[in-house]
Amino acid sequence: MTPTEFLVLTRGPLFDIAVTIFVFGIVLRLFEVLILGRKADLAAARGAEFKPGMATVMRRFVPDREKLQGSPVVTILGYLFHVGFFVCLLLFVPHIELIHSTLGISWPGLPTAMIDAVAVITMLALVGLFINRLNSKLLRFLSTFEDYFLLVVVFLTLFTGYLAFHRIVEPYPTALALHLLSVELMLVIFPFTKLMHTFTAFLGRYYNGAMYGRRGVES
């Protein structure tokens, strides 16, 4: 297979398959969670559900002081990684192009030099998180194969993107195809692994906030 054929394959059929599985899985999991619902609360409501629910979704974006002091490495690197990953994903011009071509929506991107710097920081944060997981007795005890595997998969998407952008792997079609392939791997496993927290985290936060709100507790 020539590099161009490899690229055409990853840009075409493989990408289709990955996106189909991704969307299928996400919708499946979300419906499952939503339909299952929660146990009806028979007590009289003391407060609203919706507003406190949304407030909790937003509030938990702000780092928690206790957590910051308890596990500073995970908190700081975790924030760096998450912000960095979304900056790279959503503000890099070729990514915006991809979204524009499929969903028809578009927004301005960041200068590529800035994306480059953010990508490096994001990758370093991931490496830091990986090392931390190996070093901490508690985390090592709690970690399963999936935890390490997901770190590697997410790192690969960033790393292959970095290689493609800087043309470290030659020729360019191979580099771009490798990047696409790693993204496709992530898309396929996404709904069926902990990566799903991208969506369920917000559901969880909302349920939490709504529950407390209904009971009239400030969350």
Partner: peptide, 12 residues
């Protein structure tokens, strides 16, 4: 270059 060559809307 970064746009998939196939029918992504169909896939979605």
């Amino acid at each position: 270059l970064s746009i998939p060559t196939s029918d992504l809307a169909g896939a979605i």
